[in-house]
């Protein structure tokens, strides 16, 4: 194991985060606060309670998930896409590092950053509403698992993308709609029958539900199913990354 290489990449990626602290940390905090004002205050005054939890508190897990997904994907995809774009990838390809080490470094850095942002949002939210986290261990578990899974997903997008447009395409066209429709701001029990069934095909529903269970002890679906789906998606991403590296897809011609 070339642990020095892993550490070197990890450090550079984290340094990039610190250099762009405004964009990478403060902007998600601001946008989350805005969601909070709009959804929590404006809509929350009409909905008041979902499953015995005040609406303001109810949307916190969803908000964190929303940011966690988009941040994990964008950090990891940008992290590996940028060297490809400017050409510095040559050094990575010519270095005595294994694919596993590359993934650990890039995905680790992206996940670290989005977990950090998730925790900052949690702290911000606790300024607005009272939060009593029922399963803190599971809350952290889902946070870390989701961050890693979606950082892997972002890594795949970053390798696949041949331009900045493609880099934005999947987050914009797939992930954001799935997140908004995945029960971040509502319980899918509130939907009419057919839409509830359709929602169950949305993987984000399971992430948000599991995360919400960790907070309030109650989710849209059983927590075991949430965990299972999350792990399945993680396994799928690991499989795809493995395939990419075996074939050299879009990395080594």
């Amino acid at each position: 194991m070339n642990h020095r290489a892993v550490w070197a990449i990890y450090k550079v990626e984290m340094a990039r985060t610190l250099r762009t602290i405004m964009q990478s940390v403060i902007s998600p905090v601001i946008s989350t606060s805005l969601y909070f004002v709009v959804f929590g205050a404006a809509i929350g005054s009409r909905i008041t309670e979902v499953n015995g939890v005040s609406y303001g508190a109810f949307i916190v897990p969803g908000l964190i998930m929303l940011t966690l997904l988009t941040q994990s994907i964008s950090n990891a995809s940008f992290g590996i896409y940028f060297p490809k774009f400017v050409g510095t990838i040559f050094e990575l390809l010519s270095a005595p590092v294994s694919y596993l080490e590359v993934v650990i470094a890039y995905v680790g850095a992206a996940a670290t950053k989005s977990i950090g942002i998730g925790l900052i949002i949690l702290a911000t939210a606790s300024l607005f509403v009272e939060l009593d986290i029922q399963h803190p261990f599971w809350m952290l578990g889902f946070l870390v698992l989701t961050a890693i899974t979606f950082s892997l997903f972002g890594f795949i997008i970053g390798i696949w993308a041949n331009g900045f447009e493609q880099l934005q395409l999947i987050p914009l066209l797939v992930v954001t709609p799935l997140t908004f429709l995945g029960g971040s701001f509502y319980s899918i029990d509130m939907l009419p029958g057919i839409w509830r069934t359709i929602s169950l095909f949305n993987p984000v529903v399971y992430l948000v539900s599991g995360f919400r269970w960790a907070f309030f002890g109650h989710g849209d679906v059983a927590v075991e199913i949430s965990l299972g789906i999350t792990l399945a998606f993680l396994a799928l991403c690991i499989g795809v990354v493995g395939w990419i590296f075996r074939t050299g897809y879009r990395l080594r011609t």
Binding site: N2, R4, A5, W7, A8, I9, K11, V12, E91, L92, A95, P96, V97
Partner: peptide, 10 residues
């Protein structure tokens, strides 16, 4: 320093 680390040197 990054390149050195990437190649596994202390």
């Amino acid at each position: 320093a990054f390149s050195r680390g990437l190649f596994g040197k202390p």
